[in-house]
Design a protein around this nucleic acid. Structure first.
Lengths: 285, 285
DNA sequence: CGGGTCTTTGATTAGGTTCAATAAGAGTGG
DNA sequence: CCACTCTTATTGAACCTAATCAAAGACCCG
């Protein structure tokens, strides 16, 4: 039952569908399968009528916490969609250190980074029990050719991922530690809400170390910032349990001391310049 | 002649090609046009035979330093390929600050971020005179349907961009200021070399401020780091003129003081632990 | 030549890392 | 079920990198 390699659990698609299961997916021979429409729904993609016709089935695979869905250097042929559970994706830099890139959860697609070099550049690790849908890329592309709106959606999802990374770069390049942690919590809250869970009370599935890696901070800074937010009453913290008390404060929390801001905000600069001159004048008196 | 809006310079494709020009592209009515094969070559994409057949022509447009190729919120319908010149792409955060995301140059594709929301999320600004190829996205997708290897390449290029952003996140999250600046120089050197220019002597086309924004540093830190590298003999600097003296030293320059490294390198941890114990033992003697 | 932008360099400050020690859980096996 | 261990989290103190503030010099372009 403990599959360490995908190939161990792969099986041929069922010849016929038996019965719908509770969650999205059909069951057959103890395995779950999803059709194209299920997948589009999961990805929050516009789902035109024609998609429902396609009877190709995508296999689900279960992973337990700690197991790897794919590893660096492994030949690419699949994309993956999270049906349930929590994961992290990491890059391994030349000195062997892990850098967390994302925390995929229900409805998220990962594995895209494997397309270019025909092998994965990152690793995906389950942080909890996970149900993952396998999406053979070749097949998916072929389907995009027959369902034009699907093709558009694939490009759209890839574009979305790029935007996500750009936002990440922007955050790492310009926000203070407090602001990063605050946004991280807001983002988690919103994602939990979107999934139908509580956005006010939730458990972190990742360690402080992993959060720190994701945000470009040390685990100590993350811990301290949680504590600080707790003291101000923005959140409550007890180990992995988070209670969001003032999400708007978290949302608008700017970098306390700006960074390479300055430029552009002429008014502020003008004001500061005036102050400086006043100060100088006072000094010379 | 000074076009501030793309629509001012757009014209219908020529009915027939007249004569090949010096650089990639054909000339007609004072304008440059490229075919599919030119574009694939420029993007360093596998170029199968069938591509040469396609006689659709892509229009070139010239921009002068400071002009914007596209802006935030502008409706998306084009991708852009740099045929010559230098640009920057920037995101504007909620407080109006620019964050530099990339410095596109010859052969680079940009505008991908516009696909998802059907409008651009970033801006592209010319840093020098530029010759840009317009790639109507709809048309490009359609061509991908008839040339399967092109479709694959489009996905591949998008994946490449995602990897680039991931590498950027990784760098911002884990490297010291020195290491970031060093890698920036190495990257520039390699790109200039790949373009046929000298990778040892080149001029920066961007300001210290823009480099700083790109690397998540202040302009002062960038300037100081250049000066420091200069003193160690890794490079020579004179304003925008850079001479790379020891690219390997730049390449391997690690973060002087590590960050959230620690984990994973068992040997080092073991060593450090031993040292600590030794120190403790010494202290108790 | 002059005004504006860009760059360099210095002095000071502060935010975040590093090192260290303790506490709190989670998992394991006797 | 509890002791033991390993991982994870919290908190403190000292240090250090990079930001901030400031000023002067270099360059560019009309």
């Amino acid at each position: 039952m403990s599959a360490t390699h995908l190939s161990d659990v792969l099986s041929a698609p069922p010849l016929s569908v038996t019965r719908p299961s509770i969650e999205s997916g059909w069951q057959r021979a103890g395995k779950l399968w999803s059709n194209l429409k299920d997948i589009c729904d999961l990805l929050r993609i516009s789902t035109a009528a024609s998609l429902a016709d396609d009877d190709f089935l995508f296999q689900h695979v279960q992973f337990k916490a700690g197991q790897r869905i794919h590893t660096v250097g492994q030949p690419f042929d699949m994309l993956y969609i999270v049906n349930s559970g929590f994961l992290k994706t990491v890059m391994i830099d030349e000195s062997g250190n892990e850098q967390v890139l994302s925390f995929p959860m229900k409805g998220d697609l990962f594995g895209i980074d494997g397309i270019h070099h025909k092998q994965y550049v990152s690793e995906a690790v389950a942080l909890s029990s996970c149900d993952i849908i396998l999406v053979p890329f070749k097949k998916f592309m072929a389907m995009g050719r027959t369902h034009v709106e699907l093709e558009t959606s694939i490009y759209s999802v890839m574009s979305r991922e790029l935007i996500r990374e750009q936002a990440m770069v922007s955050m790492l390049g310009s926000l203070s530690a407090e602001a990063r942690v605050a946004r991280f919590l807001v983002s988690l809250s919103e994602r939990f809400s979107a999934m139908g869970y509580s956005g006010k009370e939730f458990n972190l599935r990742m360690t402080r170390h992993e959060i720190g890696s994701y945000l470009g901070l040390t685990l100590e800074t993350v811990s301290r910032t949680f504590s600080a937010f707790n003291e101000i009453g923005l959140i409550t913290v007890d180990q992995r349990a988070i209670g969001v008390k003032d999400i708007n404060a978290l949302r608008t929390l700017r970098r306390l001391p700006p960074s390479r801001t300055r430029a552009k905000q002429e008014s502020i600069i003008a004001t500061r310049r005036t102050n400086t001159q006043v100060r100088k004048a006072a000094a010379t008196v």
